[in-house]
Simulated scan of single mutants.
Amino acid sequence: MAKVLIVEDDQSIAEMMTIYLEEEGYSVATASDGAEGKHLLQETDPDVIILDVMLPDTDGITLCGEIRSVSLKPILMVSAKKEVSDRVNALLVGADDYLCKPFSMRELAARLTALLRRSSMAPAAEAAAAKEVRQSVQVDMVRRCLYVEDRAVETTYSEFEIMKLLWLHPGKVFSREELLNKIRGLDTYVTERSVDVHITNLRKKIESDPKNPKYVRTVWGVGYKFVPDGES
């Protein structure tokens, strides 16, 4: 049974989500503010977190960043704010998805399913390739760790999924749409801009010169590819 932590100060919305998700077979814990949310995060160790942007004691964007600094569990932000800048800010601090209010419970459940599916995937082929050395960049699929020249690099859930996909297929060019479908699922609405944000953040973390990337290259008009050492 997957565990969900809901951090939402609107009691009616929190209750509606709780009732629906429990009927869908989830175990649900709820918090009405950021302080309680951080406490329950440690106490319940949820598999996925639903986090409201507007909270009484803090804003959800700040709390998202604080959670991401200690946990790689997928985070779904929910908010009445619909501007692109709001969604981008959430992604920049580590959110894995963003759902605008009002939303249907079916869509909420579909997004959670997509996030949980990708966070739990560990195919035998990937496990066998765990921490396989591809020169400077290494990806440990079992421990979900990224290394650059043996230095551990912290990533968000989506950043890791993008890097893993590119790393497993060196030289193959993936379009933004393909990356979206791979890391988010066909049932989750996101924009191609989300991929660009994740790529930018990855480059800042793994490239010595993010403006002239060595590993994660742009193929103009097509998408992105991973280039191992010694290849052009």
Rank of each mutant, 00 (worst) to 15 (best):
L165A: 11
S208I: 08
E178R: 14
N201V: 01
S119F: 07
T30V: 12
E8N: 03
F103M: 09
F226D: 01
E207C: 02
V88F: 14
E192S: 11
V28Y: 00
E154S: 15
K182E: 12
M121Y: 13
A95I: 07
Y224C: 08
G60K: 03
A29K: 09
E36K: 12
V216W: 00
K73M: 13
L115N: 01
L112I: 04
V148T: 04
E126R: 11
Q42I: 04
F103G: 09
V4M: 00
Y26G: 02
Q135Y: 09
I19W: 13
G221H: 01
D52C: 02
R117N: 13
M1I: 10
W220R: 08
D140N: 12
Q11H: 12
A80P: 08
R134I: 03
D86V: 11
T44L: 07
S85N: 12
L116Y: 07
I19C: 10
L40E: 03
N212G: 01
V53I: 15
L115F: 01
D10E: 14
L92P: 05
A90R: 14
L165D: 06
Y98I: 01
K3A: 03
V84C: 05
R111Y: 15
T113K: 15
P46N: 06
L165V: 11
A128I: 08
T188R: 14
K204R: 05
D57R: 10
